[in-house]
Design a protein around this nucleic acid. Structure first.
Length: 462
RNA sequence: GUCUCCUUCGUCUAGGGGUCUAGGACACCGCCCUUUCACGGCGGCAACACGGGUUCAAAUCCCGUAGGAGAUGCCA
């Protein structure tokens, strides 16, 4: 049987990082099995859905290279079909018109809670298949409330639920629009979905949906419910934990391959493998291997992975990725400097934000000096810097190895350690005490810029 | 409240009855490398939630307990 899966986000907000993982697992499952990965935009909540959100979801899937097959299905365009299915169900006696008002129901619910009982619709209108009141009636499924339903979940295993736990769910609202429960089932059936892989939060809904499948006389697809992603405190990951949307992580300076690898390893593993690229992921992934327990999001591990993938990228492509974080245009000479210094820069950065920040040394002279730099404006340090200016000026080549040797002998001559010379230079050139090798920086900056920055530093009054 | 699911180092996980004095990775700590900070190398700390069974043998199977999460909408 050919595998057909789908990712069905609703464009009522930004794409949650947990949804991205759901998309990833669906995509991997499809690609691993040579099946199809379809997309469905669930925009039936017209009030909250926006075109902008829909576009941003597509953009993020593209960013992660989770390519989908065919055109996305827009759920709102299937509404007539959903209605038709609901009304047919009434005709067949599998559903009915319920004329109970929301107020009436709310009262019953309140009473049930007061009695400490769980509320379920009492089936008052169960026999009504004829009296449809426009604008008032809803269509409810006549659920089978006897026996039990068994779900063989691909991730969670066998789960049995007593049907008596269910009640007659609403299929069509009083305004005539279909509910989510109906829409998903109809669309998944119409799209020939064979495997529904989705978040754990839908697990209990699945038993209701199975009843809809049965009422329609349709084949029930396979289900796989993947655990939700938690924040560091063990609650569902959300905005209050900081970054929760995919866009948040893009803005934080993470590479798509780092996100891909991190999300994949969250709840899934392949022996001791940690660094897993797309090719191996497709080859190794199986939904059955996804863990049953929820995982907490660990930013430190993501950062580690991101650092790895930044080093793995070639310098030109990493510069392109970093540009948006620079928030300024680069001249050719600035770009060339950054490229030359990139190997050293990359080794020190966890994110593109870090990288952009540290690359600034090749873009402009320091626009401020860290507190610790002041020390290097003491007379004896200024003398060292003046000597360095002379050395640099008189050097035929400012190749970093020879500069290092010169600095060593200068330090020696003055009875100080090399670190004194290096930190004085670092202060002058970078305005801070942390950077790649100062001699590398000098080599890349060139004689003129280096001497300019040192003189500027010496003349500073701090 | 009711129903459902989950529970191995701080975190992600390996483990599917004996090979477990429980393995890997991140984080953390120490050492080495070193002009700073990183990178890298080496080493260390650290876990089977608890209680009962089953078995010659249990992290692994079963049952409870506790804790956590989700669902219980005319939201999706």
């Amino acid at each position: 049987m050919a595998v057909v899966v789908r990712f069905a986000p609703s464009p009522t907000g930004v794409l949650h990082i947990g949804s991205v993982r759901t998309a990833l697992f669906n995509w991997l499952y499809a690609r691993h099995n040579g099946g199809k990965f379809l997309l469905r935009i669930e925009d039936t909540d017209k009030l909250r859905s926006t075109e902008e959100n829909a576009q941003s979801i597509l953009r993020i899937l593209k960013w992660l290279q989770l390519d989908w097959d065919g055109e996305p299905v827009i759920q709102s365009s299937c509404v007539e079909r959903h209605k038709e299915v609901a009304h047919n169900l009434v005709k067949e006696g599998r559903a009915y018109f319920c004329n109970c008002s929301p107020e009436e129901l709310a009262l019953k619910k309140e009473a049930a809670i007061k009695d400490g009982k769980s509320y379920k619709y009492d089936g008052k209108c169960r026999e009504n298949t004829t009296n449809y009141i426009e604008g008032k009636s809803v269509i409810r499924l006549r659920s089978d409330l006897t026996g039990a339903t068994t779900l063989n979940d691909l991730v969670q295993g066998g789960i049995i639920t007593e049907n008596s736990q269910l009640d007659d769910l609403v299929l069509l609202r009083s305004d005539g629009t279909p509910t989510y429960m109906l829409s998903v089932v109809v669309d998944d059936h119409d799209m020939d979905i064979t495997h529904v892989i989705r978040g754990d939060d839908h697990l209990t809904n699945t038993f209701r949906q199975i009843q809809i499948y049965q009422a329609c006389g349709w084949n029930i697809p396979n289900f796989g419910h993947i655990p939700l992603i938690y924040g560091p405190d063990g609650a569902k990951l959300s905005k209050r934990h900081g970054a929760a949307s995919a866009q948040d992580y893009i803005d934080l300076g993470y590479l798509s391959e780092a996100i891909f690898n991190y999300l994949l390893r969250l709840g899934w593993s392949h022996g001791d493998e940690e660094i897993i690229g797309r090719k191996d992921a497709v080859e190794w992934f199986d939904i059955c291997d996804v863990g049953q327990s929820p995982a907490r999001f660990d930013m430190a591990k993501l950062q580690n992975l991101n650092a790895h993938y930044m080093k793995a990228r070639d310098n030109d492509s990493i510069l392109e990725c970093m540009k948006p974080f620079l928030k300024r245009e680069l001249s050719d000479i600035q770009a060339q400097r950054i490229i030359r210094g990139m190997d050293s820069l990359k080794a020190r950065a966890k994110t593109l934000v870090d990288l952009a920040e540290s690359s600034l040394i090749y873009v402009t002279e320091p626009d401020g000096f860290d507190e610790g730099c002041v020390k290097y404006l003491m007379p004896e340090n200024i003398d060292l810097l003046k000597d360095m200016i002379e050395i640099i000026q008189n050097s035929e080549s400012i190749q970093q190895d020879s500069l290092l040797e010169s600095a060593k002998s200068l330090a020696n001559k003055n009875g100080v350690k090399l670190v004194e010379v290096a930190q004085a230079l670092r202060s002058a050139l970078c305005g801070r005490l942390v950077s790649p090798s100062v001699f590398e920086i000098i080599e890349i900056l060139g004689k003129d810029e280096t001497i300019h920055r040192i003189r500027r530093f010496i003349s500073m009054d701090m």
